[in-house]
């Protein structure tokens, strides 16, 4: 078990796991390399309770800038597909038309913090990526070839986000992301 660096204060509501907020900004002019990726990502802070989460969440303005991403990951997991926690993993990707990301992002992270996915230790974290024409949500898990887990994550997403039945959800393994050097292009599985 990971050593926790942050603890709930007296009277606060503890979370099952500590989570760390990250922020990153895309620099479209430069090719995406792991070096520029590491340079562009910034750790904002770690929370151990529901109360601490809301204090951070209120501080972060979301949805008003194009070309940035907010990340909420379990403490200790690095936001790189090559990290040990992510090596065999993958992610569900949901593309959203502009205007929906804030609400959907909040619902995804509340489901994650509240342990609604019921997949043991599988969830790593979630990302919202604010783009120019569309926004992208993703949720990462540890074991991409565990179909029971990935199906359960997909079904929970449909439920908590109340997704229209025609919403396209795509699953992509991190190996595929490494291979084509893109997080969202050329997705292999589409359901």
């Amino acid at each position: 078990s990971r050593r926790k660096t942050v603890c709930p204060a007296a009277g606060e509501h503890p979370l099952q796991y500590n989570y760390t907020f990250w922020y990153s900004r895309r620099t479209p002019s430069r090719p995406a390399s792991s070096q520029s990726y590491e340079q562009n990502i910034r750790q904002i802070g770690t929370v151990a309770s529901v109360d601490q989460f809301w204090r951070f969440y209120h501080l972060i303005r979301q949805g008003d800038l194009s070309g940035h991403s907010d990340h909420l990951f379990k403490e200790g997991i690095k936001l790189h597909v090559g990290d040990e926690s992510n090596r065999s993993g993958g992610k569900w990707i949901i593309r959203l038309r502009k205007g929906l990301a804030s609400r959907f992002w909040e619902n995804i992270i509340l489901a994650m913090l509240g342990e609604q996915f019921m997949v043991g230790e599988e969830i790593c974290g979630a990302v919202v990526s604010i783009r120019f024409q569309e926004d992208i949500l993703s949720i990462w898990n540890r074991t991409s070839n565990d179909q029971m887990t990935t199906s359960r994550i997909r079904d929970t997403l449909r439920r908590v986000l109340n997704l229209p039945t025609n919403t396209i959800m795509e699953y992509k393994t991190h190996n595929d992301s490494l291979r084509d050097n893109s997080s969202f292009r050329n997705t292999k599985i589409s359901l």
Partner: peptide, 21 residues
């Protein structure tokens, strides 16, 4: 072990508690 589960409504209610500000 036990898992700490919260539903959405509970989490949203906590949003307005004095501890969350």
């Amino acid at each position: 072990g036990t898992r700490i589960i919260y539903d959405r409504k509970f989490l949203l209610d906590c949003r307005n508690s004095p501890l969350a500000r």
